[in-house]
Design a protein around this nucleic acid. Structure first.
Lengths: 255, 255
DNA sequence: CGGTATATTGAAGTCGGTCAAACCCGGTGG
DNA sequence: CCACCGGGTTTGACCGACTTCAATATACCG
């Protein structure tokens, strides 16, 4: 179930900034441009770089756009009445933010950059219009939503702290590897321990402890902002029950 | 963000069994027929009733169809190497099964009827073809996937047993109410305690205990296969942090 | 009816959470 | 250059919610 790139070699949009974007081959925003070349320049969705901590939208804001991540990392999160923050998802280059808002009139969560990020805003109405024009893009859209659903369902299971963290690390490694960012199984942790903990339904202390155990076992080399995987097999075995590492499933940039 | 019914009053497909189906107004299968009237009879997707315990597909089966639930209830579940079963979702009339397989070549879970169920099988290729023809249907499809994603993300949070079970019961009540099946806040529990427990990441014993507590508080009247909600407000307050009860979000049949 | 699966109830155990203190590291300013 | 500061991270001790194990009760179905 492979997907062909959405662009053609001599597409007029390539003149714009989109064509130079690292992820344009798999970008839905780029595809929208391709469908509407009359509306050049093709970088009309492009926004200035979003700084760490800046918000893209807030919970309750009117749902108007789907956001495509070009670079960096974004988290979505909710805050309950006691002020507890809960991270619902991390979004890396190629991901779309706001898909869980389509069934509503407003966003169900806040979206905030956890690293300097480049984001494109796609008007939802225009996006759906383009989907009808471009069968390839419709396919890609369904794939992206299916992927998100699959990951959410997989990770929502009842696993040990070790299993969930192992799965998370391997998923990150896989994503970064496909972006060509990985050298020697070296992962860059763009998000804080606290955010990882919240995402995995664990306490930050637990993250520290588990990483400590992994390190003591010689499976990883842990540093605050980066992390090196030394024993992929051990982590894979541990993470297997979570099920998001199945190779037949393309959960990467291109999915 | 309301969606108009997909059928027109004098649609030729109404002659088939689909037109008499209780959920045809919101059924994607019905919409596929509407898009291809030449291929009548319209009930070609219809399958004989699936008995309780019968499987619709198995994990690893080639992904070819999306299944639409017309009546009854289906669960999807995985089994890890230790034989532990984990329920990933319950599917009620109007729901689509297999959306998390779109990004893969095979189904990631087993699907099994937990009550006598009527199921329609939609070939995925034909479904995507129809999506391009019918803007309304594309919208509906995106809504359905968004809804599933939203629910999965919401329920995947780290909540107490009480919160999760309250949210589950209210969600069930809401769904059954919209089907017109609810009389006097009386819920029919088509699935077993064990399945509910697995779905909510709890032990079956915990389900019993919490239901016992709810009953002792006078909030519900609990019976093995049915359940009556006596204090909706109390349950709603409890379930609020889970967030799947937001009225602005149409998570029902029609979403 | 009896037999089996499911549901309930009780007692003991465990994993991860909470709370508190120590540590580390980058940034600031003297 | 170094002392100080403040967030994030790490580590330890204790605690609590849920699980597990075991026994009983109830419902279902031939």
């Amino acid at each position: 179930m492979t997907i062909e790139p959405l662009h053609s070699a001599n597409n007029p949009c390539d003149a714009g900034r989109c064509g130079q974007c690292a992820i344009h081959e798999v970008c839905v925003a780029y595809a929208v441009d391709t469908a509407h070349p009359a509306q050049r320049p093709s970088n009309r969705y492009y926004r200035p770089e979003t700084a760490t901590g800046s918000h893209i939208f807030w919970s309750g804001d009117d749902f108007r756009h789907i956001y495509a991540v070009k670079s960096g990392c974004v988290k979505t999160y909710t805050v309950d009445e006691d002020g507890n923050e809960r991270v619902r998802g991390f979004y890396l280059p190629g991901d779309l933010i706001g898909l869980d808002a389509i069934c509503a009139s407003s966003y169900p969560s806040n979206a905030c950059a956890v690293a300097p990020s480049q984001i494109c805003a796609l008007p939802y109405t225009q996006l759906t219009a383009s989907l009808a024009d471009l069968p390839n893009m419709q396919t890609r859209m369904l794939h992206l939503m299916s992927k998100d659903l699959f990951i959410a369902l997989s990770l929502s299971g009842d696993f040990t702290a070790e299993q969930r963290l192992a799965a998370f690390l391997l998923h990150l490694l896989d994503r970064e590897r496909r972006q060509g960012l990985v050298k020697d199984n070296h992962i860059e942790l763009l998000m804080s321990r606290r955010d990882i903990a919240s995402y995995l339904r664990l306490a930050p202390e637990t993250i520290s402890r588990v990483l400590g155990r992994f390190q003591k076992s010689g499976w990883i080399q842990s540093q605050p902002k980066t992390l090196k995987v030394l024993n992929l097999a051990a982590l894979s075995t541990l993470a297997e029950p979570v099920g998001i590492l199945d190779d037949s499933r393309d959960l990467s940039l291109a999915a």
